[in-house]
Amino acid sequence: MALKKQEQRPVAEKGEHIIARHLIEDDSIKEEKNLVIDGVDVSGRWNTFILSRVDSEFDRSFFREIKDTVVGSRINRCWQCGMCTASCTVTPLYRRFNPRAFIYMMQLGNLKELKKYIDVAWRCVGCYKCSQRCPKQVNPAEMMEALGLLIKKYFPEEVQSKLKVDEDVKKIYDDMILGHGRLDLAKLHTSAMQKTGRTKELLGKIERDAIFKMAKDGRAFSILRLGKPHNWNSSKEAMGNYLKNLNTIESSEA
């Protein structure tokens, strides 16, 4: 009789009966759909448990790990002023991509928080605008590399499942690799700026200065002189095929 009643009960969403449910993250609600303790049926809302929302530790081991890497060695300098995020090429496109906030999470070893950003954490285009402005010379652009490495190490499964490629960005990458045989950071930067409608800034003083500087110290020309990689045509074909296969796999998964 009791069993029958249970079967008829409509299946509730996890934590559905909690007032102001939207304030609590999914991960923080523990609830067993079917649970019987000592013969008493406590399924669903009868066993709901909300984990404490108060952080109880700062994990400095994590900070030290980052500090020992070449790219992350200046993590101890960051004082959270926000100039990097304010100057970032990517943030206006993905508001959740926030170099300053990521650096803070890394400083405090807050992996729980970082985990929420796995889908956007790798989106830095390497334009170095942040590093150019950072008043403490933290080199936030390279901190983003440290972040990528870290996420790959600590959340390998999530990286597999959550990293969704942005089609526009992917096209820019693909075209660049097939067209030039290498990534061209300047072009990546320009494309990202165009995509966010910031073409005017490309003609601004800071960008112009950077271009003059690169032309003057020869970096701009050495990039042009590099040309395409050795034996490019066959590589290009192989890569083209690889990308085509990848696309088919991805679209069949979607």
Binding site: G82, C84, T85, A86, S87, N98
Partner: peptide, 28 residues
């Protein structure tokens, strides 16, 4: 407002635009 300004550009109607991050609210 907590955040340092990274850039000042020209805006509409003869204004100047401050570009920064609100570091408390997390966002540019």
């Amino acid at each position: 407002v907590k955040g340092r300004i990274a850039e000042i550009t020209s805006g509409p109607n003869n204004t100047v635009v401050c570009k920064g991050e609100d570091t408390l609210l997390r966002g540019p």
